[in-house]
Design a protein around this nucleic acid. Sequence first.
DNA 1: CGGCGGTTTGATGTGACTCAAAAAGAGTGG
DNA 2: CCACTCTTTTTGAGTCACATCAAACCGCCG
Lengths: 248, 248
Amino acid sequence: MADRTDLSLYLCKLEKRSPFSEAARTAFLALPVRQEQFPANHTIVSEGGRPTRSCLLTTGFVSRNKSLRNGQRQIVGFHVPGDMVDLQSALVMVADHSIQTHSPSTMLTIAHADLLEIAARFPEVGRTLWFDTLVDAAIFREWTLNVGARTAAAGTAHLLLEMHYRLKTAGLAEDGSFELPVSQAELADAVGISAVHMNRSLQALRGQKLIRTFRKTVTIENMPAMVELAEFTPGYMHPEGPRALPAT
Amino acid sequence: MADRTDLSLYLCKLEKRSPFSEAARTAFLALPVRQEQFPANHTIVSEGGRPTRSCLLTTGFVSRNKSLRNGQRQIVGFHVPGDMVDLQSALVMVADHSIQTHSPSTMLTIAHADLLEIAARFPEVGRTLWFDTLVDAAIFREWTLNVGARTAAAGTAHLLLEMHYRLKTAGLAEDGSFELPVSQAELADAVGISAVHMNRSLQALRGQKLIRTFRKTVTIENMPAMVELAEFTPGYMHPEGPRALPAT
DNA sequence: CGGCGGTTTGATGTGACTCAAAAAGAGTGG
DNA sequence: CCACTCTTTTTGAGTCACATCAAACCGCCG
């Protein structure tokens, strides 16, 4: 799970969903990658930019956000190691949102042309990347619900549960504990509330002994109550993987 | 643009983005479809359901929504004729949201197996469907911004502008006028505000002579002011189409 | 030790919600 | 064409969740 300079981390995740042929696996691992390092709070892609490579996050923490003229920022998603952060740029030419690190991060970048080529050559690879995009979209939908319909406390709880779930899947959480290198102001931008109110929502969760925080580590103390409050059901992330390929 | 019992409507839209080979075009039009009719306010897919066919909307108006236990409902997207409403179910087995008609609608449905098969056989088809999903995701992101960061009036304006833009692209709007067969309560669920507040937001827009409404017809009277208020930039829908396929 | 980003607290304002009921349309059947 | 019902829109009043502003506090780093 540690720092890798090859794509096996991502391959592993993809194949957990549906296996590749031997040839696809070989070609995938042979994709030319470039490793890049970024400091914390660094903007990797800006809204309106035209990235030329897609990024696989191997260590660190990044977010995707959009902003309004008045300075209001909305974080529309977080990414954890093992995520293809900028898969969409493979096909979409101009970025409709920014991507930013929250802790020092390392990425493996792949040229779009290479990604499209392997997707075209091996249908199972294309299908899996498409599925990745579908899961991404499902997470955005849930986030809309979070921001639009849930109360501040429930939305916050939901965000924490999602991050816990995803980090655990990536092997980066234990016993309901995980590192969240994100300030309260940033969490607020993700849930669509003010920083002050985020602070008070977290206090409420702590007061009810649902969570505990120390430095940037969050511990979920009462998982059932959190799940109940947030109405969290991880099904929307589709851990079951994609539909099996029709027999050919 | 009218009622068609074949897929040429959708093919047309897809090929405006990037052309298919002759063989792909033929295979696409030969996909076995089934035409289905639904009345208004009919639930086509329920959250948790397992649809077996994907739907292309040919006439009517539908939405995708998720709800909370307390009855709060969030509409996460609308669809206009020419949209593949349920493309995602081709790969994702269990629906994470419901799909509902708002006016009498007719759909062409395609078996998932057929869709996956043609996507695998013709890389350009797979790529185009993937792109469709990417645009879908981009719209969800903008919607999150709408619900989380914009004020009620600006969010409402943005929603109206997006619907106008998409309907116009589908040839269903003229001179800033379009049919929106959706009640104010439903619009409220889309913008994440109460029905009463939606009513007052619409009154505000009317009061400033930005829009006019008659029955279910909305007319945008002052396009520049609306665009300014909503900070609407259609770029997020990526009308430029996908990146060109790498020369093989 | 001073400066700095982040967290916490308090006070006050307001945008949006809820409840309730009237008014206006739309659909149905006689 | 009217009477009836049902839905949708509109209005008013009272309340609450959340925003804003401002200042204090804290841990961290140089």
